[in-house]
Design a protein around this nucleic acid. Structure first.
Lengths: 344, 344
DNA sequence: ACGTGTTACTGACACGTGTTAGTCCGAGTA
DNA sequence: TACTCGGACTAACACGTGTCAGTAACACGT
């Protein structure tokens, strides 16, 4: 026979006080006077009954869920999907815990409608949403924002004032290319991480371009090829670059996963990295450390992204104002072997 | 001025019916008669007001949260922490969505008390818990189970009847060693994934042992070294094995991350894999595909683990009975280059 | 005329908590 | 003595929903 869970009423009865007093004591409400003896009696009764307040009732009466959700679009980007999730979630949950919030994880599969997260917000399952990989044609998103529902985007949605957090892709790519320039390369190719419909791809290309311009090297379209998230696209792209006359002496590959394919092809062709051709990647996936030569790459602060997004979201929930709507986090160049810089 | 969210009362008023009728229509309660016109009027009113039922109120009255939680211990195992999480979460969320449940993600940091997840259960934030990496000294866990709270363990806790899901470590390790035996190796070393306090380590060692015994090869303690989750431990362990006279012709490393260290040392020493020494790993982390030679390893069905755990948990929540309390999922040997099998 | 059954709907309670507006009582003050 | 004040506590409402018991209207068979 399953016994009924104890309620605050049971605690009150056992302690010989009213339910109100129980609530006041257990929530440590400031500005009310409860005698030490009564307080002690209530705490003891709660302990004895192993009382835990019912979350649903609390949510109902307070109107707050103390929960935030991460809405995670499963796009075609496997790196994004697998390599960034642990760090991002860790950042989010750490910040959430710090402020007393829970975290709901809601991936959106390709077969689901884009607006399936709306119920989460409208039905008051959560106090706010972090939306990863927002679509610009998502009208529901704008509706929610207009109605004042707390939202933070992970990624960018140009032309809106919805708060967002992302990495500085332009600067990150420039970091990589500047490093190659510093090593003396003048003919530097690029393989994008994905087609240019993706914002991040355009931005990383822009960073490449800026770094070249800064160094007084004209931008040459022939040196740019387009990756598509996976290894295979890297193999095709590097072959196209190798077919140039002369081929580049270095290539910035804007995705480690794509770079894996490029490096495989170089190895198969008997070309040595970095001696024959230098490579710098982007993302710093786990494998980057382990391949030979170890991949020089741009590290994405996944934990920081998660932490920042969650912290800003909770700030919005508390109706604080944010100093800046859009935040770009700095990336970090991790120098290993594939770029040809001297390694101690 | 933020307008009040519409309630079922507002819908009722607009449709000219009682609140009960609204509830009956919107929930499609079977066995009640509502005229088609009324039904239509209610649906139209709900649509017009953009009505979403309040989750907290629903939870309170129904006593169900339609939420399950993944409680995730952040142990010292980086692979477990990062490489398995995405797949596991995907499996869990897929199953959860299929049955109409939400997923709460609750990592437990090293600085937190072990019982911080209890409030999740006792406070009725969730209908059930998946606990990853259970501790045998966790009395709160046993208490919850005794009180009939739905629990599923990811991992094993010998001596309890708490339902659990794990991979068959013994069989997985045996698969790896049998493969090496089939390739003609007779002197096979082993490096464990972690110290033997960890159940998985003991089991993988047992699988190694069983495969040898099966082949009529006596177990030799001198051929076994102990890894400790990371690369460095792999480097030390492989050096100890190389110092043997004669050294093993093949080594089963019960963790890909540890194997990364071992292979680095072999390369540094100028030894070729698999020609001089064959290697088989365990886990199939992303990097295993990309290193040279590509690592033959045992794949862990992370998605399956998540799906199975969630599905069984939800079954428990529905008070269905499970055929078997403990489930072991099969692993799969992924043959690549490091073992020396012919690759087409 | 009368009981029976069915259809279509509603009133009222329950869920367990936070919180506001009080009440009671004894001490302090004019 | 009368009046005020604050300490210690409580009664009662509100949150928004699901659901059970009940009712009015009407059809139908005898």
């Amino acid at each position: 026979m399953a016994r009924r869970r104890p309620t605050s009423h049971d605690v009150a009865k056992l302690a010989g006080v009213s339910r109100t007093t129980v609530s006041l004591v257990l929530n440590d409400v400031p500005g009310v006077n409860i005698s030490p003896e009564t307080r002690q009696r209530v705490l003891e009764a709660a302990r004895q009954l192993n009382y835990y307040p019912n979350a649903a009732a609390r949510r109902l009466v307070s109107g707050q869920t103390h929960t935030i959700a991460l809405v995670w679009h499963r796009g075609p980007d496997r790196t994004y999907r697998d390599a960034f999730l642990p760090g991002l979630l860790q950042g989010i949950t750490r910040a959430a815990r710090h402020y007393g919030y829970h975290v709901l994880f809601r991936p959106i599969d390709p077969d689901e409608s884009d607006d399936c997260y709306v119920e989460l917000a409208r039905g008051r399952h959560t106090d706010g949403l972090i939306l990863s990989g927002p679509r610009s044609d998502d009208t529901h998103l704008l509706d929610l924002h207009r109605d004042g529902f707390p939202l933070v985007l992970h990624g960018q949605l140009p032309g809106t004032d919805i708060p967002s957090v992302d990495i500085d892709n332009v600067r990150g790519a420039a970091l990589a290319v500047e490093h190659l320039l510093k090593l003396g390369h003048r003919r530097i190719g690029m393989i994008t991480n994905a087609p240019l419909i993706y914002t991040a791809s355009r931005q990383r290309l822009e960073g490449y371009r800026q770094a070249l311009t800064q160094a007084g090297i004209p931008y040459d379209e022939a040196l740019v090829r387009y990756g598509n998230f996976d290894e295979e696209s890297g193999q095709q792209a590097i072959e196209a670059l190798l077919a140039l006359d002369p081929p580049p002496t270095a290539v910035f590959v804007a995705s480690d996963m794509v770079a894996m394919g490029a490096m495989r092809t170089l190895r198969d062709r008997g070309l040595r990295v970095p001696d024959d051709i230098a490579i710098v990647g982007f993302d710093d996936i786990t494998a980057a450390r382990f391949i030979v030569p170890a991949l020089t790459t741009v590290r994405v602060p996944t934990f920081g992204l998660g932490w920042t997004a969650a912290e800003r979201l909770i700030r919005l929930i508390h109706r604080d104002t944010l100093q800046e709507t859009h935040v770009l986090l700095e990336t970090e160049l991790v120098v290993r072997e594939s770029c040809g810089a001297a390694v101690p």
